[in-house]
Amino acid sequence: MSPHRPAGARTRRAGAAPYLFLAPAMVLFALFTALPIGYTAYLSLRRTKVSGLGLGKGARKEVFVGLANYATALGDGELWAGWLRVLGYGALVLVVMLGLALLFALLLDTLHVRFARFSRAAIFLPYAVPGVAASLLWGFLYLPGVSPVNDALSALGARVDLLGAGTVTFSMANVAVWGGVGFNMLVLYTTLRAVPREYYEAARIDGASETQIALRIKVPIVTPAIILTTVFSIIATVQVFTEPMTLRPLTNTISTTWSPLMKVYRDAFVTGDLYSAAATAVVIAAISVVLSFGFLRVVRDRAFGEGR
């Protein structure tokens, strides 16, 4: 080590202060992020072993099982079926939510200020509603027996069960879109407001229409922000839990393992198998890392200019 660092002594003296400042963050990180992750990984390699009837003292002990829990998790068709459902749901949410967010941001950027302020607040408001409350609210609107939406639809002659097998994914995506558009719009809108107005002036002098300005100037400028919101949304989608969990008691169409995270919850807290839950959680984390970084890799050059 030392041959590479001729000025080692001085670096160390200067190094004490930064570490001191970093310490609180590092301690918190270690305690509340690194430690639980480590414990999860540890649990995922273990399992309870019961002997005989499993009743009474000492009938149950924890043993090391290596990667057996991972083998079970990866071999479970229900987990992959869950991924497929989430993939369909996620594609829907991502496209519609980010599409609407971009559209609203562009519109607001061209609107008169007072109207823009009101619309911005109105579109953002649902984001402040907690997910469980939003899901319950929408759930009541979906339930055929009590739903005004349904009454309106059947008055028009359409009989749709909004929680039916074919529609439930759309209904759930709708909740997520309703709650998420505002936040993403705000991120994009803020980026747009930071763009110097001279660009647009120049474009207008060159004879560009508003649509052309939007598509050829604004969209390319906010691309990094779009990518950021996409990554956030991918992560949120992979972890979808609140909406299906809250809507589940209302319908036969959502199983207890509808999304991968619901399976983790079921294993850990319903069927009491923390070890399988830990293994599945690690698998989910790995997949979301791959998805997020994979997406970033694909779009990196485009998003962040010349790359390296």
Binding site: S255, V270, T271
Partner: peptide, 20 residues
Amino acid sequence: GPNVNVTYNAFKDAFGKAIQ
């Protein structure tokens, strides 16, 4: 039995699907 929670959970999923 010692794992009624598993049985009951299986009931919910299996009967939900059967009804559907």
